[in-house]
Design a protein around this nucleic acid. Structure first.
Length: 245
DNA sequence: CTTAATGTTCCCCA
DNA sequence: TTGGGGAACATTAA
């Protein structure tokens, strides 16, 4: 999303940010008017627009989208009007937000795409919870969500309920996380239900999903049916044979 | 009618 | 203090 929205916004002056919701986040948006967007970058799951003073932090929640151009629809919750460009923030379920912040969101762990193997191993050692829950915890690691947690665990052959990994498997998991995210970004993300980029184009990494929402289908490695269970209130997909605790 | 859905946060309890 | 369970938030689709 950052890669497709950045060309529309970087360097432009914000005329106004108008919200069409009474969610609390809509309050702080006045601060953005008149400021120039210095840079557009990702911070974990946040999309940050760096302004002259502070930043706009956008979180897409479950169904949020940023759409360049286009006109207001029934799920448009905010509009970012710039000199020469307009970007809509559409969000069916309204778990997403756009807010002005003085600085980067705090209390988040290292980025899942940038964390070194050593730091990852060190942080893993400090926790004893279930791996799936840990990977979803943004203060442990920022940037992983349900899809890529499941896909990374499968690729690393680690059971979602595993805890306290040995060095070998921890290294495998770190590698799987970086690989799965890099590949997903290269393929434009996973369009499973709502996601499209800022130009309205779906991604195609969903065709590479090996377990996510493939309950009952044969595992591509061993043929065992993929199972689904709940972990941390999230649907969790895994191969009961390939992924051991 | 029920369940699940790319997420986060807060409350209760061990 | 850490973790697990469940609920809440809001809406659609199967």
């Amino acid at each position: 999303m950052v890669r497709t929205v950045a060309p529309h916004l970087a360097g432009r002056r914000i005329v106004e940010v108008r919200a069409f919701t009474h969610k609390p986040w809509a309050q702080s948006l006045g601060k953005a008017s008149g400021q120039t967007i210095r840079a557009v970058r990702r911070y974990g799951k946040f999309i940050l627009l760096e302004l002259d003073t502070g930043l706009l932090a956008i979180h897409l929640g479950m169904t949020g989208k940023l759409l360049a151009g286009g006109s207001r629809g029934p799920y448009t919750r905010a509009v970012l009007v710039c000199d020469g460009a307009t970007v809509l923030f559409d969000d069916v379920r309204q778990f997403g937000s756009v807010r002005w912040l003085a600085r980067e969101p705090a209390r988040l762990g290292p980025d899942a795409l940038e964390v070194s193997a050593e730091e990852f191993l060190g942080r893993l050692r400090a926790h004893k919870g279930r791996l799936k829950a840990l990977l979803l915890n943004q203060s442990f690691l920022r940037g992983l969500g349900d899809i890529y947690a499941d896909e990374a665990l499968f690729r690393a052959r680690v059971h979602p309920l595993a805890a306290r990994l040995g060095r070998e498997r921890a290294l495998r998991l770190h590698e799987a996380i970086v690989n799965v995210l890099s590949e997903a970004v290269a393929k434009g993300g996973s369009s499973v239900s709502d996601y499209v980029d800022a130009d309205g184009r779906p991604g195609w990494f969903q065709f590479e999903h090996r377990v996510y929402r493939r309950t009952g289908e044969p595992c591509q490695v061993c043929g065992t049916p993929i199972k689904r269970m709940l972990v941390a209130q999230r649907g969790t997909h895994y191969c009961p044979r390939c992924q051991r605790k």
